[in-house]
Simulated assay, not measured.
Amino acid sequence: MHVLGEQQGKAVTDEAEPESADRGEKSGVSVRRRRLLRTGVNLGASAAIVAGFGADYVASRDLDTITYAMARPGPGSATLEPRTKEVPVAWHEGLRLAFEAQERIKQTGAQSLVGSFVVPGSYDSPAATLAVDATDESVADTLADLTGEVPIAMNLVDELPAEPEGTFDRSDVYQVPDLPDGRVPGGVACETDAGVGTLTPALYDADGARFFGTSNHVFGGGGTMTTEHRGEPLAVLHADGPRAVGSVARGYPTADLVRVAPDDGFRPQSAVERASPRRVVGQYTKFGLADLMARGEPLTKVGSVSDRTTGRVEGINGVTCYTGTSCKLGQLKWGGQNDIVDGDSGSVNFHVDPEHPDEGVLVGGLNNARTWWPRADFSWGTAAHHLLDEYGFHF
């Protein structure tokens, strides 16, 4: 294993020396191997299957072909069909090895590990790496047995400080000017008794039923509630005042998503207000997100407070333990910490449909949080592919 980066000023590059129970002195620091397990993370395999496609949406082991997106074949369709493309074999193989190493990290866990992401290579430099945040350098010993020859970029951080309490002027929040025929797009401000967030575009369950969504933590409790807030109203901020458009059916804490059943007369739209184009036609797979990163293609978001921002993909297929009481899987990080602000939670990031760039966009994932600690600068949230894999939900 090769560990890249620095730990509090000490180089942690480790050429492939034999591992032992006690590694002794390393970079002037005594490192003692420990067996560290994190409990409370549900690591079961995904069971959701939509339109006949399983978790990775790859029909064969042909490393030249990936399914980069799941998209609707036409307006009004609630089902998804695969979009495929050809990629370099070496790049795909490097990505596969990194995904496997990441799965081993997640299966074992480490108490001091607070974040881990797969970082795809470019097509010119195809090796993928793993970016790891940890509060104790001894996690490197655990990783050494798990990742093989996949390079690790490890950032040692102190105990994460408390999240700062954010405030914003509600006069800056985007209020939808009208709701024709009760149709409500994503990207507009939504309000609960606990705070303000941003509405997602329409989400669909495995039966094709539409529902409203936003970040679970917009209802308070740090996104930890499943049924405690069932029945609470969700309102859209409108020029004439808040309009209740639905009520909570259930929260999903480990995805930081809440499902809101539409009230009579209101209908979620597969559209993002103020995006161009507005229409949402589907979503990227984790291979599609990797392809965007390999080609340097950015993601864009439209939030109800900070409006439109754009940034590049920074890591995929992540596990984060930065916030809340439980770790979160299937995470996507992108851009910088200023690409979302308080009130943008629940917005989605997206990229134009490469096959029909003037007609629609494909969603990358939710925007749930941003960094606030030193030596970290990104935004993150649950990827759309994980919502499909784990719950059968899609955009």
Rank of each mutant, 00 (worst) to 15 (best):
V3N: 12
E6G: 08
G9S: 11
T13F: 15
E15A: 08
E19M: 04
R23K: 14
K26R: 05
S27V: 10
S30W: 08
S30M: 07
S30D: 11
V31F: 15
R32F: 05
R34I: 06
L36F: 08
L37P: 01
R38H: 14
T39F: 15
N42C: 05
A47E: 15
V50M: 08
F53C: 12
G54W: 09
G54A: 15
A55P: 14
V58E: 10
L63I: 07
D64Q: 13
D64Y: 01
A69P: 12
M70V: 00
G74A: 09
T79M: 13
L80N: 14
L80F: 14
A90E: 02
G94F: 13
G94K: 14
L95R: 02
L97A: 15
L97D: 05
A98R: 10
A101S: 09
I105E: 03
G109V: 01
S112V: 00
S112D: 12
L113V: 11
V114E: 01
F117Q: 00
S125N: 07
S125G: 00
A128Y: 08
A128K: 01
T129H: 05
L130I: 12
T135W: 03
E137K: 07
S138A: 11
L146R: 02
T147N: 12
T147H: 15
E149G: 11
P151M: 15
A153V: 14
N155H: 15
L160P: 13
P164I: 00
G166T: 06
D172P: 05
V176R: 08
V176Q: 03
P180G: 15
D181F: 11
P185D: 14
G186N: 14
G186W: 15
G187R: 08
V188E: 08
A189K: 11
A189D: 09
T192A: 10
G195Y: 04
T200D: 13
R210I: 10
F212H: 03
G213Q: 12
G213W: 02
N216V: 15
G222N: 13
G222W: 03
G223N: 14
E232L: 04
P233I: 01
L237S: 08
L237H: 07
D240S: 13
P242S: 04
R243G: 04
A244G: 11
G246P: 14
S247E: 11
V248H: 10
V248T: 10
D256S: 11
R259Q: 12
A261I: 02
P262I: 02
D263S: 13
D264P: 06
P268Y: 07
Q269P: 00
P277H: 13
P277S: 05
V281R: 10
G282T: 10
Q283C: 03
K286S: 06
L289E: 04
L289V: 02
A294E: 09
L299W: 09
S306Q: 10
G311N: 13
E314V: 00
N317T: 06
V319Q: 02
Y322E: 06
T323K: 01
G324D: 01
G324P: 11
K328C: 03
L329A: 03
L329P: 08
Q331D: 05
Q331S: 08
L332K: 07
W334Q: 00
G335F: 00
F350N: 07
D353P: 14
V361W: 06
L362V: 01
G364K: 09
L366V: 04
N367V: 10
N367P: 01
W373M: 04
P374Y: 02
R375T: 07
D377H: 10
F378L: 04
W380D: 03
L387G: 09
L388W: 09
F395N: 01
